[in-house]
Design a protein around this nucleic acid. Structure first.
Lengths: 142, 142
DNA sequence: CAGAGGATGATAGTCATTCTCAAAACTCTG
DNA sequence: CAGAGTTTTGAGAATGACTATCATCCTCTG
């Protein structure tokens, strides 16, 4: 995976510095998208401004993905699906804003792909990603 | 519909003032979620602070729904689905951030409901809403 | 009509995120 | 290894969407 990340960075004329590697390492270990404060806490040595700058850049070259929830305080970040090779969706708590991952049935995925194709044809949009959120209350908030 | 809105406001000890009615009227006419600047432009007489305050309140009593997109500048607002009686999802342009509505096939809806039930049982979340976004480039941005 | 309670709108504040810029770290050549 | 050139870093300032404040205005009830 490291190699693929280096490749994507290179395509954008960027290098894998130690801060960037630390960022990616934190995200790789987590099984859910993390907020900036969470990332900062997980690796104490990173400056907030550098975390923001590097996450933005890593998103541009397709290493990282930004997840925005309706309870709009902090954005969450995760590695992109084609790096983790783990297509998944999100379970969002409308109480505390936390985000969990879940995997959809292949039947559901087929239905979405089908819908996307049909909508693309009708609307003229070029669709390249879909997103399914289940929204409710986590055990803690319920 | 006006009556149902008045009822929901009353449940939260709120009245349907003329500004609030104007807000709802703007949203009712649109076939897609609108940003605050768009709402302000559609009805020139509304103060920005009042638009924000009333939209927040209307969301609390379940009249209006806030839509947040990843291209995170402005939030978009629409009437809730149980008022319009029109269950729909969103087609989001990652270029300009615009949002269109689309309706999903009943097969897709069934699959999502099914997944939600299964996930709820396994995770302990109480799921009460789902959200499907198709993300890509609109004809203008492509 | 008086007066109380809520609604409005201009303005000031908040806070996640982005920008700035000087200092530090890396890269490359000789 | 020295040193010039370039990139990255980090602390703090700036931005901008959104929220709070508060004096004024409306809208009811009596």
């Amino acid at each position: 995976m490291r190699e693929r990340i280096v490749g994507r960075l290179a395509r954008g004329d960027q290098r894998l510095t130690s801060s960037r590697e630390a960022l990616v390492a934190v995200l790789a270990v987590s099984d859910r998208p993390l907020t900036i404060p969470e990332i900062g806490a997980a690796d104490g040595g990173l400056a907030v401004s550098s975390i923001y700058r590097n996450l933005t850049m890593l998103e541009e070259v397709g290493v990282v993905h930004r997840v925005v929830t309706a309870s709009g305080d902090f954005a969450h970040y995760e590695l992109t699906e084609d790096l983790t090779e783990h297509h998944h969706h999100h379970l969002v708590c409308s109480g505390c804003g936390s985000v969990e991952d879940f995997e959809a049935s292949s039947q559901l995925e087929d239905s979405v792909r089908d819908a996307a194709r049909r909508i693309a044809r009708r609307s003229g949009f070029r669709i390249d990603r879909h997103l399914i959120d289940l929204i409710g209350l986590c055990p803690n908030c319920a």
